[in-house]
């Protein structure tokens, strides 16, 4: 079973994402901010990270930059999932090493399609 880490400060969003991902046969863990997500990745690297942008303590972009610096054997696929929908934010995310980007609000089939695009489904 593939593993994913859902990083979002909204418990509602995490729950919805978890439900979608579990239907797609992913085993999910959750983190409420970037720092907690980084700790989770240091413990065990997931296959992919579903990442919000605006969060307390450490935002999604700072988390991504720190993640890409980790001396890990393998790096997870990172899909941003955020209300930051302008082109500048998307460019920053891609430059920081994001593999895909989902603009909120989104339909569940979009998440599935993105997972297909990055080779996880």
């Amino acid at each position: 079973m593939r593993t994913c880490l859902i990083v979002d400060d909204s418990r509602v969003v995490r729950t919805v994402a978890r439900r979608i991902l579990e239907e797609l046969q992913f085993s999910s863990r959750e983190a409420g901010d970037g720092q907690a997500a980084l700790a989770a990745c240091q413990e065990e690297i997931p296959d992919f990270v579903l990442l919000d942008w605006n969060m307390p303590v450490m935002n999604g972009l700072d988390f991504l930059r720190a993640l890409r610096q980790l001396p890990s054997v393998r790096q997870p696929i990172v899909i941003f999932c955020t209300t930051e929908n302008d082109i500048n934010h998307i460019q920053q995310a891609i430059e920081a090493g994001a593999d895909e980007y989902i603009m909120k609000p989104f339909a569940s089939d979009v998440l599935q399609a993105k997972l297909v695009q990055v080779g996880l489904l």
């Binding site: 998307i90 980007y101 989104f106 695009q117």
Partner: peptide
């Protein structure tokens, strides 16, 4: 909504 359906970022 339309661009997200199928178009890589």
């Amino acid at each position: 909504f339309e661009v997200q359906r199928g178009l890589p970022i």
